[in-house]
Amino acid sequence: MSNLAPQVIFIGLGVIAVVSALLVVVGRNLFHAAMFLGAYMLSIAGFYFLLDADLVGIMQVFVYVGGVIVMLLFGVMLTAQMTNVRMVSAVKQRGGTVLSVIVLVALLASIFKKTAFVISQATPAQNAISLVGKLFMTDYVLPFEVVSVLLLAALIGAIVVAREEGRPQ
């Protein structure tokens, strides 16, 4: 039973992820799509917990479900009618896209099957949060700082772009 539980959880989360992702992509209602994206992200967070990546899982819930989804909902509500009659792009490339995507996924899958990954049996770090915190401040300090600058730039950029021109603040 204890051996079977992870598999059951994996399959369950996998089904939720795939179905919600599909509903995001094919659904007709934008609001629903955003909601299904939330479900998808929660299921991904579940995978993170299953993979002993507690911090990433928590951040997933905070950042994505709490932040990104809300922001996207704002976007949805500001720009479009909730129930679009036709969601499919008028650009006629459905056949090509489906074929290409299937081929790509098959190629990736075959790579993953073929590759002999060296699996480590070591125990995962017990105190992942402090470990990650230390790494951010030591080995990854430069990328960390760069990302913070990037976020600041994105923040300012988003405001500048979205602001209506000519209107004083």
Binding site: A17, V18, A21, L22, V24, V25, L30, A33, L72, G75, V76, T79, A80, N84, R86, M87, V88, S89, A90, V91, Q93, R94, T97, V98, V101, I102, L104, V105, L108, A109, F112
Partner: peptide
């Protein structure tokens, strides 16, 4: 990979920028 493929198909086939 499957999830990535689904997302990719969405990018290529949807018309709404938010989607």
């Amino acid at each position: 990979a499957i999830l990535f493929g689904i997302g990719l198909a969405g990018v290529l086939l949807r018309k709404n920028a938010v989607t």
